[in-house]
Structures are given as structure tokens and as C-alpha cells.
């Protein structure tokens, strides 16, 4: 028996629950391609936010090879939907939405306050020393992210770069 899947941490829910093709002979009438929530998140972190797979895997709390498998599967499914003119629906997957965290700049703690907006930091009691926790922003702010993506030639230091 294989090991059970690890739960993937997803930053936020997808904005829409699916896509439909238009024009042509098919109008999404055939069976939709099911894109899992974790695949959506992998695509978002890698292609939209431009993180490396290592960093993205850290955010989703899975291993780097597992992240790559999720990402490949996402691209395969989207390509299939494009080519075959099928609709896509984003649903399912073994995920947990890990949102609602705040970071305090004064005492350095990370806290969570359910559904309501916090008014003070629960540890140090400061009024306006916290901000919403954003793992992608946190990585981008830290050193070593700048100029990660060059002109697309694959080389880290591109000679043709303007």
C-alpha cells in the first residue's frame, strides 16, 4: 500500500471555480478537466509569482520532487483542456487553506485571529505593529530573489539582458 498523501498548504482559495471555452464547435459541453486546488496553487506560485520550485515547495509544505509532480500534472491538464477545447473546473485535492495569519513587527510573533480582524497583537499588545502574513511576499523581500528570472533564455546571468 502506498503512503498516504501529505496535506498541501494553499495560501488562498482560487478566484473562480472554473473556465469555459468559447467559439468553435465545442462549448464546454464535454466532460470538464478537473484541476485540483493544489495544482492551481503550484501554477500560481511557480508561474504567476515566479518563485523557484524549492521555495514554492516550502510554502506548500511538500518536498521539492512532489511539488514538481503537482506542477507537471497541472500543466498537462491545462494543455489538454486548451487543445481539446474542454472546460476546466478547479476543485478537490488534499489541501488546507492556510490563511488568516498576521505577523507582528514588534515582538516577531505570528498569530491568527479566526475570522475577525485583530485590533492588537495578542502577545505584546501593540496596536498597529502587525501586518498580514504573506509567505510569497516574505520570500521576495528576503535577499536572493532579485533578478531570478532573466529574459527567459534559461541562464541566470543573461548577456542579452537589457
Amino acid at each position: 500500500m502506498p503512503r498516504p498523501l501529505k496535506t498541501r498548504f494553499v495560501c488562498s482559495e482560487p478566484a473562480v471555480s472554473g473556465f469555459r471555452p468559447y467559439g468553435g464547435s465545442t462549448d464546454g459541453g464535454s466532460v470538464p478537466v478537473v484541476i485540483l486546488c493544489e495544482e492551481y496553487e503550484a501554477l500560481r506560485l511557480s508561474d504567476y509569482e515566479g518563485l523557484s520550485q524549492m521555495q514554492a515547495a516550502g510554502i506548500m509544505q511538500v518536498s521539492r520532487p512532489t511539488f514538481t509532480r503537482i506542477y507537471i500534472s497541472a500543466r498537462k491538464k491545462i494543455a489538454a483542456a486548451f487543445v481539446e477545447g474542454r472546460s476546466m473546473s478547479i476543485e478537490g485535492g488534499k489541501v488546507i487553506y492556510n490563511d488568516g495569519w498576521y505577523v507582528c513587527g514588534k515582538c516577531g510573533c505570528k498569530f491568527e485571529s479566526g475570522k475577525k480582524e485583530p485590533s492588537i497583537c495578542p502577545l505584546c499588545g501593540g496596536g498597529d505593529c502587525f501586518r498580514k502574513y504573506d509567505p510569497v511576499g516574505e520570500i521576495k523581500r528576503s535577499a536572493g530573489f532579485s533578478a531570478m528570472r532573466g529574459c527567459g533564455c534559461g541562464k541566470r546571468k543573461c548577456l542579452k539582458k537589457r
Partner: peptide, 20 residues
């Protein structure tokens, strides 16, 4: 852990995570 967060949300107990 991932089992804990929804439980605390339900019970309205605030989680504080510290580093170091």
C-alpha cells in the same frame, strides 16, 4: 499542525506562533 488549526478556529482560541 494541519489538524489543529480548524479546531482552534472553531473554539475561538487564538494561536500565536513564535520563532527562535
Amino acid at each position: 499542525g494541519f489538524k489543529v488549526k480548524p479546531l482552534f478556529d472553531q473554539l475561538d482560541i487564538q494561536m500565536i506562533s513564535i520563532e527562535g
